[in-house]
Design a protein around this nucleic acid. Structure first.
Lengths: 216, 216
DNA sequence: GCGCGGCTCGGGCAAATTTCCCAAGCCGGA
DNA sequence: TCCGGCTTGGGAAATTTGCCCGAGCCGCGC
């Protein structure tokens, strides 16, 4: 997998939409140096295909049904820490980006990017570099100026409150469950949002779901 | 636009992701009889491109930022009632399908469909037939048998606002996107919650996700 | 031992949002 | 034509949020 220059770059495509995969395949293979050696439409198959084909780069949409794409990244990296994974998705939330990188992704490119940016990102991660699209860099820059870190920064209590909140409980219900004052739960709610850099309850729910804290 | 057999089928591609469009273009043009004559990444441009190129079929993802894709369908059909519009999206919620058809779409195909099903759907709508992918037919069938899902009671505007909200947008952002007052969006928010019987924003997000209105 | 920093718990208070009720315009169907 | 539903918003009370603060507890290093 290291002789990139001589053999071109082998790519594993992971996306849950068949025609999207086929479209990417054609775009990538028209480049000459990029070769799609396998496709997968879910996290489990992605892991299997990675074991079989050992591609230079995995291009993966992390918003797939079933298991979390982040989990797939973790699995692949656990098997081969040298694996290069380029996340390619329509989401551009800072928490997701950070979660992807900390899960072991080498790059993060949004589908809003120009096709040339995507293929360049693939080449970059194949060379072992980190890559991200301009909009993602912007999101992360904004985020680093305003907020702290993602879900790992949360304490036990905060995790528990976030779980119940994302599960649909009201502030009062959480307070009752945990024998806290409503005020305390409200403060935790606020603290969790600032810590995770989410501005909306909906984003918080999505984050919790993306991190496997709650299932939808 | 009627001499389809002699000249092939001209297609206008509407999707907000550049590389997705480029992928579709390659898939469609490899078919021989399909020719992509224009692309657009938003509703307004789609309408302009339709006026300019008068394509046989418009292949459109209705989940675009800004104006509703349903609105774009209506605009195009208002200009030319013989326009053939094939909705091509990842959403498979019955309310969305029904809304698209009542807005004037000729077909509805999900991105989960096999590429062959997509190109066949394009040929079908070009012949003036109605087309939908198997999963959409299944969803509609289920829907017609059920007592009504939670989202069935929602109007088009409510669906759009719910989608954006569940996607993480704030009330003000939604108001800006849709050119409404914040107050109106707030009222919709409240109305949606009462109609769906949810008491929490988190429950609303989960409902939207469960119905395929948004993905996590 | 002692301070430092972290988590946990909550008060306070202005600002913002939500909740609920209401009205008006528009449009399609009976 | 009238009724009902959708869409758009105003108004006012109720609630929550945003951000500040202090207190108790516990581990950790000096």
């Amino acid at each position: 997998m290291s002789e990139v220059a001589a053999t071109g770059i082998s790519v594993l495509l992971v996306d849950d939409h068949p025609i999207v995969r086929q479209g990417y395949r054609r775009v990538l293979e028209s480049q000459g140096d990029l070769h799609v050696v396998a496709e997968a439409d879910n996290a489990a198959d992605a892991y299997g295909a990675f074991k079989t084909h050992d591609p230079d780069v995995v291009v993966m949409d992390i918003s797939m049904p079933g298991a979390s794409g982040l989990e797939a990244i973790r699995n692949i990296r656990a098997r081969n820490p040298r694996a290069r994974i380029l996340v390619f998705t329509m989401h551009n939330e800072a928490v997701l980006v950070k979660a992807a990188f900390s899960a072991g992704a080498s790059g993060f490119v949004t589908k809003s990017s120009a096709p040339s940016a995507v293929v360049n990102a693939i080449r970059s991660v194949a060379r072992g570099e980190r890559a991200m699209s301009d909009d993602i860099a912007h999101v992360l820059a904004e985020d680093s100026l305003s907020t702290g870190s993602a879900l790992d920064q949360l304490g036990e209590r905060e995790i528990e409150i976030l779980r119940q909140f994302a599960g649909g409980a009201t502030t009062e219900e959480i307070a009752t469950h945990l024998n806290l004052s409503v005020k305390t739960v409200q403060n935790y709610h606020y603290l969790i949002k600032t810590k995770t850099g989410t501005r909306t309850d909906a984003q918080l729910v999505r984050l919790a779901a993306a991190c496997g804290l709650t299932k939808i």
